[in-house]
Design a protein around this nucleic acid. Structure first.
Lengths: 159, 159
DNA sequence: TATTGTTATACTCTATAACTATA
DNA sequence: TATAGTTATAGAGTATAACAATA
């Protein structure tokens, strides 16, 4: 039995892809949508979105973190971060306390409700990951992480 | 000089990531956003979005293709496909002709305007790809494609 | 009954512009 | 001048629900 490479062409043989499948963005986008839509569905009962959990995760590990730090880490603009912070604040998952040292900044702290939600959400995320990555060998997983990160860390910002 | 693995931790050393960077979705999402936002900016003058170009690409290569075929290929719902078709139709990039054989279905055809836009957009996409993937060796590029596709083609639909 | 296309609506994530307050 | 946060608005991509027409 020959080892066959599974291609997207093989899934929709009636379509001439004309090289569209040579574009990396197509595959990254498809994978991203699949990962996100699954996770959204699994997190539905906890009333949190994937990005909200990611924010909560870092606030939990970094009590008093600033929104601008989160903005830098996630590579998203400050107003975008603020939107998630506002949602999480309204849901009682975190609180914002103005810093005494720099009164412009406000430190973020997770609440008890937030901790409970984060704990449950983490379980779901780990289960999802294990299931989704099960077709890959450990070496392949490592390589997928490494290559993905290598590309976006090498990309010049806003060119 | 030792070969160092570039990590996300190294970019924001002040943050305790607490394992968040072990989640694949974080990296795929970041890469996806970076690829998309760049491409959106570069396509801005042509008044088309990345997804519109992808649709146009397949309509061009498959004259008379049905919306439901595109839905299957892109793994998105029919109303989502229809939205892009409507945008492209309004912009004069494609036309929809009802099929004579199956009057439920409508075949899609690209227009002259659509062809011109697609040709220009393809140039931009190829240039983008080459630039973005330049940090990777040819073998690494192949592996990134292969692994990305392998994951999402193995994922059970809607679980 | 199943498929194709459509309409209406809503959600997630992201951005820009413009503002206030503070450093 | 620069930074932190905020508000308002918009755009890209996706989904579900419900429907008509056709097979």
């Amino acid at each position: 039995m020959a080892t066959e490479t599974l291609t997207r062409q093989a899934v929709t043989p009636e379509l001439d892809l004309d090289g569209l499948d040579s574009i990396l963005g197509i595959h990254v986008g498809t994978l991203n949508t699949l990962l996100l839509s699954r996770l959204e569905r699994h997190l539905e009962s906890f009333k949190v979105t994937p990005k909200q959990v990611a924010i909560l995760w870092l606030v939990n590990a970094n009590p008093g973190v600033k929104q601008s730090d989160l903005s830098r880490f996630f590579k998203i603009e400050r107003p975008t971060v603020h939107q998630f912070v506002r949602q999480l604040t309204m849901n009682g998952h975190l609180v914002s306390e103005p810093s005494k040292l720099d009164r412009r900044a406000g430190g973020l702290w997770i609440t008890e409700t937030g901790t409970a939600t984060l704990t449950a959400a983490r379980e779901i995320i780990f289960t999802d990951e294990a299931e989704l990555l099960s077709p890959l060998t450990p070496a392949e997983r490592e390589e997928l992480y490494r290559l993905t990160i290598k590309v976006y860390l090498s990309v010049p910002n806003r060119t």
